[in-house]
Design a binder for these strands. Structure first.
Length: 311
DNA sequence: ATAGGGTTAG
């Protein structure tokens, strides 16, 4: 109950009070941690449970631990967990196997995720979606489209974000439109993830005005939707509008920009030679927004000042 | 008590 409502501390305290927590209690705590993005801690507790308390992990435990490995990109640990899964005799569980595919996919191990997927006896929409996601994460966009075309009932609405991302990666606007239509035909409607992917797709394909019209119709926008639009203007040589979008996002909508927002903003400044304003944005990143300045931002600043003759 | 989707410099 606390874990589902961001009460990680409360969940921890209650767990510590338990006189003799069994494997289900431990697993519940691990699930709370993964659900709230505390992946390192989740792994720590797993090893604790396993090594110090000799409790037996089940499919729920392994699912959560594999999720932690996926999100941390820990291939080595993930493989070890895979070994434990095989030894435990619950290898043929659709949750665990889908998590394994996802783990190998997010770690970039193409042979492994394909191998696990091919050997799965039972597959469902999530398994197929994870496979698409794995190919997409490894820039195998053509494979994503090929598999998606062969899928019918196996796919559900979750697949569309990934497939649209693949179309954007290939800048194939015609196929992107087809997928867009298919999404609508299947009753897709007002999904912030799909709509963000659509804005990005059309912007990347150069149909920026259409992207803008679509963006205007979106009801629920989050920072990623805005980033897609901001970066879309930047990519299409419309830096002023990119900066206007950024201002709108922050001042009108009160949405906090993130690391990626500033890549679009600084790159926009570089394109329209706004050196001083670019510097101000660069400084405000850490001062006003407490966002860590990364290599991409420094690169934009080098570009910005280099283009302006300030070698 | 369980798994999956979207934004990123040169």
């Amino acid at each position: 109950m606390y874990g589902r409502n961001f009460g990680i501390e409360e969940a921890r305290l209650l767990f510590d009070e338990m006189p003799d927590p069994d494997a289900i209690c431990w697993t519940t705590l691990i699930l709370v941690l993964t659900r709230n993005d505390h992946f390192e801690e989740a792994l720590k507790f797993f090893y604790f449970m396993h090594k110090d308390y000799r409790l037996v992990a089940d499919e729920f435990t392994f699912g959560a631990i594999l999720m932690a490995c996926s999100n941390l990109g820990r291939a080595k640990q993930g493989k070890q967990v895979h070994g434990k899964v095989l030894m435990s005799g619950i290898g043929a569980n659709v949750f665990v196997e889908s998590s394994l595919v996802d783990m190998y996919g997010k770690c970039g191990l193409v042979v492994d995720y394909r191998g696990v997927f091919d050997r799965m006896l039972k597959k469902n929409a999530v398994s197929w979606c994870v496979l698409l996601g794995s190919y997409c994460q490894n820039d195998e966009f053509k494979a994503v489209l090929k598999i998606f075309r062969k899928m019918e009932k196996e796919s559900d609405m979750y697949s569309f974000g990934t497939v649209l991302r693949a179309c954007a990666g290939l800048t194939v606007v015609r196929q992107g439109k087809e997928v867009h239509c298919q999404y609508l035909r299947r009753g897709g409607w007002r999904d912030v993830i799909v709509e963000s992917a659509l804005v990005d797709l059309y912007a990347k394909c150069g149909v920026i005005d259409y992207a803008q019209r679509l963006f205007a119709e979106v009801r629920v926008r989050n920072v990623i939707t805005w980033n897609s639009m901001i970066y879309g203007f930047t990519q299409n040589g419309r830096g002023e509008e990119a900066l206007m979008m950024f201002t709108n996002m922050v001042e009108e909508e009160g949405i906090m920009p993130n690391y990626i927002s500033f890549i679009g903003v600084l790159f926009a400044c570089s394109h329209i030679s706004l050196v001083d304003q670019g510097r101000e944005y660069f400084v405000s990143m850490s001062k006003e927004y407490t966002i860590e300045v990364g290599i991409e931002h420094y690169t934009c600043m080098v570009d910005l000042q280099g283009r302006a003759g300030k070698l």
